[in-house]
């Protein structure tokens, strides 16, 4: 598991400062999500990791090695990359597209074929689609193929630039779940760019908020929600709905207390506070029993627990 680090990186395109004094450490195995307004330098930062763009100032290191000193072609073959606009090869079938990097690495034909099959299974690409050409796929199928191509050679690091941008909410949620599963199982380092705050909060173990080429705040999503570094982050996190988002990230077990007041409904300890609130609104009760996965009683959660905790937790955001 290779860590990635930016050391005071600067990059300009003519008069545009795409990145300014940008420093960031991404531990190996992290799911790092870069988020920020359009043009803030997310893609630029991402593309520095696989040497598509080299820094004007500072260094980018992968596993401790300066990216600028590595052979870029060889380096890229060991990093999965999903580009912002998919970019499947139009003259190759989906299977050939997925096998692109294994082929570059000189894998045997049967091994390539096995991997294509495995990737198709992993990303829910029907076998019938494998022999089609990219223009014969829907936008969502193309994005799945793009992700499969990036993962095919089993890279330790995966870079994804808005990979689910063109998807409907349902397919997006499915692919997010698949990606979470892949990350949890493989422990790969994933660097992921998105505009979508909910996507970022859901996937990230490390969230990086950027603005005009600067790193504004980096940390676990819940920490950023609790303590936004400044009003810009607060606004970007969703302004008015920041507390609701926080409820989304917190589990019922964190606020429940072992008391018995005769609550009617029941909710799992692992459910989010938002789900608890939703159930209260639906049933009209202000108290819920909290149960473990195996159904054993744990305590109760009252509407006051949810609200008081929320206020205390984010008091400095509204200041």
């Amino acid at each position: 598991m290779k860590p990635i680090a930016f050391h005071a990186v600067g990059k300009s395109f003519g008069a545009t400062h795409a990145l300014c004094d940008f420093s960031l450490e991404i531990p190996g195995g992290a799911f790092c999500v870069l988020i920020g307004p359009s043009g803030c330098g997310k893609s630029t930062a991402l593309r520095m990791i696989n040497a598509m763009i080299l820094p004007d100032q500072g260094r980018v290191t992968v596993g401790g090695e300066d990216v600028a000193r590595l052979d870029p072609v060889e380096h890229r073959r060991h990093i999965g990359y999903v580009i912002q606009s998919v970019g499947l090869f139009p003259h190759w079938t989906v299977a050939q597209n997925i096998a692109a990097v294994p082929r570059l690495l000189g894998w045997s034909k049967p091994k390539q074929a096995d991997r294509v099959e495995e990737m198709a299974g992993l990303l829910g690409i029907e076998p019938a689609l494998l022999e089609r050409y990219p223009h014969e796929l829907s936008g969502g199928q193309q994005q799945r193929a793009g992700v499969a191509r990036a993962l095919a050679a089993d890279p330790e690091i995966i870079l994804m630039d808005e990979p689910f941008a063109a998807l409907d909410p349902t397919s997006r949620a499915t692919l997010q779940a698949e990606l979470e599963r892949i990350h949890a199982r493989s422990g790969k380092t994933i660097v992921f760019v998105t505009h979508d705050m909910d996507e970022a909060l859901r996937l990230a173990t490390q969230m990086v908020v950027m603005d005009r080429g600067h790193l504004v705040q980096s940390g676990a999503p819940i920490e950023i929600l609790r303590h936004p570094a400044n009003s810009l982050v607060g606004a970007f996190l969703g302004g008015g709905s920041i507390h609701m988002r926080l409820l989304d990230r917190l589990a019922v077990r964190e606020r429940s207390t072992p008391r018995r007041t005769g609550a009617t409904g029941a909710i799992a300890a692992g459910a989010s506070l938002r789900q608890a609130l939703d159930l209260m609104l639906a049933t009209g009760s202000t108290r819920l029993a909290v149960v473990d996965e195996d159904g054993t009683w744990r305590g109760e959660i009252h509407i006051g627990d949810i609200i008081a905790g929320g206020e205390a937790g984010t008091s400095d955001a509204s200041a």
């Binding site: 696989n50 380096h75 890229r76 990359y81 580009i83 090869f89 990097v101 793009g146």
Partner: peptide, 26 residues
């Protein structure tokens, strides 16, 4: 398309393979 060449470069195609396998056929 730029996206196609960009993807090829990002996946680790060198100049020669980019020309022979991506640009010329297209």
């Amino acid at each position: 398309p730029f996206a196609v060449k960009d993807a090829a470069r990002g996946l680790g195609f060198d100049r020669r393979r980019m020309l022979l396998e991506i640009e010329l056929p297209l």
